[in-house]
Amino acid sequence: MAVKSLKEFLAATQEKDLSSDAFELESPYMLEVRVDGRVWAKSGAMVARKGAVKFTREGVLERGVGNLLKKLATGEGLRLMKAEGQGRVYLADMGKKITLLRLEGDSVFVNGNDVLAFEDGIDSQITMMRKVAGMMAGGLFNIRLSGQGIVAITSHYEPMTLPVSAQTGPIFTDPNSTVAWSGTLTPEVVTDISLGTLLGRGSGESLQLKFAGEGWVVVQPYEEVTFQTKP
């Protein structure tokens, strides 16, 4: 690896202003948010800030009673914070790769652990997979994001998108590797009894998500365990 002078290092790592959007990637792992009003972000994701920006945890009933009840039912949930004011905020999440999605009236479901930030104009609703909740401690929760604006999601390494259609047939994924899917799809939780018997009762592969219809699903080359199996 070539040794850089201090001047070269500072020039290479200096923040960039290449876009007029509120969200801009400083690197594949660092997001700059230009706050002018309010933005929602994953709690604890801030690594730096400048300007008059105030951070507040999401209120108990801020996103409605329905979201609160689903959080209580699952015993978990995406912890959000509000960044309000004027300034710049820099966000990251354990070195995970960040992808920016611009929603134009679309909707997308994202694994609750993979939501990094979204603009204030985006509507967010918690959804829960009931069958998983019955089999796993805490269940599996997701966030439905819809409307107009930019959403930042994260993944371990490079994500891969699989198209889902009647021609391709259903797609089966590991819940711990599933990052997001189109709002047109409703996954079904299925259990592979033979695989579970072969690999042992605690095998994550015995529990899968089945996607059928028309849309797409995003997976990552990593199994991110966000819940544990019941004994």
Rank of each mutant, 00 (worst) to 15 (best):
D114S: 15
L103K: 11
E32F: 07
V39K: 01
L207S: 04
D106V: 05
V225E: 07
V132Q: 03
K70N: 07
K54L: 03
I193K: 00
D36K: 14
T229S: 11
P163S: 05
M46C: 05
I150H: 08
G183Q: 12
D21M: 13
A117H: 05
G200Q: 03
V39C: 07
E188C: 13
A12I: 10
E62M: 12
F211K: 05
G44A: 15
E224V: 14
Q14K: 13
F211Y: 09
V35E: 04
I171A: 04
L61Y: 09
Y90I: 01
S206M: 08
G105T: 12
A133S: 04
A133K: 09
Q148F: 10
G37V: 00
K70S: 05
D93H: 11
Y90W: 06
K16N: 01
Y29I: 11
S206C: 01
K131H: 09
D120W: 10
L25Q: 02
M1S: 14
E188N: 15
V39G: 04
R144T: 00
S146R: 15
K96H: 06
N67D: 07
Y29K: 15
V3W: 14
T173A: 08
E205R: 14
G64K: 07
K230H: 05
L185H: 07
D114G: 15
F118H: 06
M30A: 09
R57Q: 07
T56M: 11
L78E: 00
N111V: 08
P221R: 13
G59A: 04
V179L: 02
S5A: 13
S20H: 07
E119S: 14
V132K: 08
G112W: 06
K42C: 06
G59R: 02
T191C: 12
V3M: 14
L72Y: 08
A12F: 11
G147Q: 03
M136S: 01
L162M: 06
K7W: 02
S5M: 04
L195T: 10
D114Y: 14
R79C: 03
H156G: 03
M94Q: 10
R144P: 02
G87A: 05
D123M: 09
A92E: 01
I143P: 10
E26D: 09
P159C: 08
G200E: 03
T197V: 05
